[in-house]
Design a protein around this nucleic acid. Sequence first.
DNA 1: CTCTACACAATTGTCGACAATTCCTGGGTA
DNA 2: TACCCAGGAATTGTCGACAATTGTGTAGAG
Lengths: 227, 227
Amino acid sequence: MHIENVLLRPPVTASDRVLLEIQKAIVEGSIAPGSKMSEPELAKRFEVSRAPLREAMARLERCHLIERTPNAGARVVTLTPQGLLSLYQLREELEGLACRLAAENMAEGEITELRDLLDAHLQTQRVREGESYYQEAGDLDFHYRIILGSKNPYLINILCDELYFLVRMYRVQLGMNGPRVSRAFDEHKAIINAIANRDGELADLLMRRHIGASRQNIEIQLQNKGN
Amino acid sequence: MHIENVLLRPPVTASDRVLLEIQKAIVEGSIAPGSKMSEPELAKRFEVSRAPLREAMARLERCHLIERTPNAGARVVTLTPQGLLSLYQLREELEGLACRLAAENMAEGEITELRDLLDAHLQTQRVREGESYYQEAGDLDFHYRIILGSKNPYLINILCDELYFLVRMYRVQLGMNGPRVSRAFDEHKAIINAIANRDGELADLLMRRHIGASRQNIEIQLQNKGN
DNA sequence: CTCTACACAATTGTCGACAATTCCTGGGTA
DNA sequence: TACCCAGGAATTGTCGACAATTGTGTAGAG
């Protein structure tokens, strides 16, 4: 009952490779939201046949980066306030659950590693103040480990494989760096403590708040962009 | 931002048709759990080429009915107590959320329809006492409508497209009919009332309990089977 | 007798071409 | 001028064959 996580395995096949490239392009916006995904065009651009390309597109649909209609083609998703709200409603619930389960199921060693990771991340953060990439990567890593710590394969699959690309897309395309960086560290720290104390209920609550705050932060950016 | 629900659209393409057939076969167990899914064999059996078959298998993987490993092939999932627990942990959380959102977002008309559905279902149930099929179908319909009522496209997608086939597989293959039928009606009724009163918090709680009870019921069957 | 290495068979991944459907354009009509 | 319908171009869905990889069985060495 081990569910493969396509993120964590090297791109063994051609469609794996193309998938990663297109995912990156969509998340970073170099393929514009709402634009049409022409199969012949993309196949030529990424130098593969249409077979692996279609396989990749099936997986892109799975992680909600494109929307397909039979016999009509696919388009890149568009970012909307409603979409963001729906996404974060889910994330709050699911990552809350992940925290609760992680508090029950994470090994002591995993918790220690998580602490070390946060410390290491804090240092690089101090050195390279303002560079949002490290914040992004570090934050992602933190959430990933907790999700994996839940040991629930379906939950892991949904969050890491299906929802997180969209989360990243919203954050990247709205240019997240901002003033939340330092506060996020404290919140992360508190969550780790709760997990280390095996207090699932508290960990759940803190994670929900953490994500709620993150959502509000993005919503502000989205409003600013709208005006 | 409308996410297509493959369940609710007629099978327009060949891979759609094959997908439905194989899903049915796996859920009902006529393709045994753990058995290998040979592409040439299945293509011949369902009278399609390997291209649409592979597309169907990609979607089977998406709803967790098969597990694939690159360059090695796919196997039907096996049912385990741990798997069931993981699945229902998620369901409790997600359908609880769905109820809360449904209480906020369902139109009055939809709620009325839901009531009518339950009443109609109750009558056929009385008439054909003991036939588990109607229970299955009616229960499914009830849950579906609430999920759709949440109006959260990601939530709908995960529950209806990705998780429900597995839920059905567990129930069908463990032969669910049992004594829970009548009590489930009362629980359904209470949930509808909470939604009608726009009491999301209560609806959430009741749905979690409802699913928890359902899980315990299945776990008992699973234990009996093991002994 | 056991273990390793090689070669063969079978399966999966990929390719290019064909069929079916959709979308777009242009012409005709009210 | 606006609307509708037909025709053609382009795109998606499907097919059969080829290439690449895996698993297996066998032969040989230790």
